[in-house]
Write a protein that binds this DNA or RNA. Structure first.
Lengths: 262, 262
DNA sequence: CAGTGGTCTAGACCACGAA
DNA sequence: TCGTGGTCTAGACCACTGC
């Protein structure tokens, strides 16, 4: 049947204007915040909450839906609803593309992940020529066609980031940049070998809720936004030589930047 | 009664494994993406959708809830469900704290907003001394107490950002920094006058769903994440002289940074 | 007032996971 | 097998908006 959900949760206030399902969500949220339910712990089942609060199941489900949309809980079919654990966070430093990090063989992602004790993987590799979308095209100086390099990054088996790099075709065609494996130091090292010494990168950071395809690709649970990062690389001639469009699971990243004061 | 919702929406696929409410959400989402429903337009009412698809009202409401959680639609009690308009976006440039922008009288927020043709406001101003939270304290070199300056920023009456600045008390007490109005150029100008020439800023950027209090303070509609930005200001002695904790409505901002390639 | 979305009930059947 | 969450129905009453 459904044992008592323990003494952690109180009673409803029938005099309150606040909707019943919001009151229930408030109580569970407060219990989570106070540590009465720890990370990864199972919340009381729907039937337990129905019995405890004396409401219908839909009311309880509405309450749990609030917590899921806030990113506080996530449900697992057949098992229960759990306090969502905070996954390890990957920190992107503002010097992550500095030339000195590129001298070695491995990619920045691989080096950094291994240093943090995680197992890095890259999959869904696809390299193709295509007509660029208008905003990408504008950033690259309106080339007719571009080389697109798509890939997905995983840490310990969990997808955390999906990225597409676009390069003007006249620059990349026939070079190792057009190969699935661009070689040591990645495409930035290849660009410099081709005479395009990199000067600086512009990054634009946005946050939004994911599209259904992004939910699938990054296996996002509900209540997790994505960070959208668009980076443009410029060579010392001031030419945009690459645009990288990245979507990251927001609960897996913190971006660090340093700004000059002068 | 409920007129036809026009020929924009198709039929359900009864052979599909996909849940009915997801199919309905898919159809409406696709119609929005194709521009069949424009920004700000009213979607078919719940009763129209009930009639069109031949399902119960809860099924239709579940479908609409998906679109709202994705940030694609928002409901207005008594009026309808509407395609959520994309508000104007405020762009934060990476040189926004450069000293040259500080020479004039007005604050950076005010200057920039007026240049963009918006009406800027700052409210909820509160200045007080308090014991810092552990993470703030650590960033500032563990002072016993700090000066906290809280405020909220609005554009054309819409709240877009809430911020708290923390400064070590020994540095700020008794100065104009402890006044509600810190004077021309803001607290950074005052800090430099006090001999703390600023060297650089560190910024940490995260994204997550808002807490209920943040929803209230920023009047966020569902499906809108927040960007959390923590900035630490360092003087030329390497001392952290200010930490600013900012929460921004993610649909109102794009952050721009420039990274060196050296 | 009629139409809209907001809340809530009391059922039903299904799919998944663990034992 | 049984307990879990996932989906769906067919109602009900309420609160807000606009005419």
């Amino acid at each position: 049947m459904a044992a008592l959900p323990s003494g952690i949760l109180g009673d409803l206030d029938p005099t309150s204007d606040r909707a019943v399902f919001r009151q229930i969500a408030d109580q569970i949220r407060e219990a989570i915040d106070r540590g009465r339910f720890k990370e990864g712990a199972k919340l009381p089942s729907e039937s337990e909450l129905v019995e405890h609060f004396g409401v219908s199941r839909m009311t309880v489900r509405n309450a749990l839906a609030i917590l899921q949309s806030e990113g506080l809980a996530s449900s697992e079919h057949g098992k229960g609803v759990f306090v969502r654990p905070r996954p390890p966070v990957r920190r992107l430093a503002s010097d992550r593309f500095a030339r000195r990090h590129r001298e070695q063989g491995k990619s920045a992602f691989t080096v950094e992940a291994e240093a943090a004790g995680s197992k890095p993987e890259v999959d869904s590799l696809e390299v193709r020529e295509e007509k660029p979308a208008p905003d990408i095209s504008a950033r690259l100086g309106s080339p007719r066609k571009v080389l697109a390099r798509r890939r997905r990054y995983l840490l310990d088996g969990r997808p955390v980031e999906a990225a597409v790099s676009y390069l003007p075709l006249d620059l990349a065609r026939g070079t190792q940049i057009a190969e699935p494996n661009p070689g040591p130091g990645g495409i930035y090292a290849r660009l410099e070998e081709l005479g395009h010494r990199l000067d600086h990168f512009d990054e634009e950071v946005r946050a939004r809720m994911p599209s259904p395809s992004e939910v699938k690709m990054l296996r996002l649970s509900s209540g997790v936004p994505v960070i959208s990062l668009i980076r443009t690389a410029y060579d010392t001639d001031g030419r945009a030589v690459e645009v990288c469009d990245t979507v990251m699971a927001a609960d897996a990243y913190v971006l660090a930047y340093q700004l000059p004061a002068n």
